[in-house]
């Protein structure tokens, strides 16, 4: 069995954590923000967002609360836990290391 979308999925987790670290949002807002940031490059469908949120919540990285949104509707808002912030730092550091290395290699090839 293979996990073809491992990289993207791991990245999705990190992106969600990053977005939520700035501001608590509901599912729809997260999906909008994702589209803005990644300019649709990652091709995250709205459908795959919710299972990912469930998984993050189960892992204890984000927590969900029902709050009133701007237009006075009850909505489920997600925010990162302390554990989630730590995870984000770890993932970011890891990402930076890997991407530096990769871009180094890629540049090496170009040269």
């Amino acid at each position: 069995m293979s996990k073809p979308s491992d990289l993207v999925q791991g990245t999705l987790d990190m992106l969600i954590l990053k977005i939520l670290a700035l501001e608590a949002l509901n599912g729809w807002a997260i999906s909008q923000r994702l589209k803005q940031i990644s300019a649709d490059v990652l091709g995250v469908s709205d459908g795959s967002l919710y299972p990912a949120l469930q998984k993050l919540e189960r892992r204890g990285w984000i927590r969900a609360e029902w709050k009133f949104s701007e237009n006075n509707r009850r909505a489920k808002f997600y925010s990162p836990t302390r554990l989630g912030r730590k995870q984000l730092e770890k993932e970011t550091a890891h990402w930076n290391r890997v991407s530096t290395a990769i871009s180094g290699i890629v540049k090496l090839k170009e040269a």
Partner: peptide, 18 residues
């Protein structure tokens, strides 16, 4: 259309929630 099949997503959420 952009969200995808509601029922599948629900089942996937359940699976993901474990």
């Amino acid at each position: 259309l952009t969200l995808g099949g509601i029922t599948q997503i629900e089942q996937q959420c359940r699976d993901a929630r474990g």
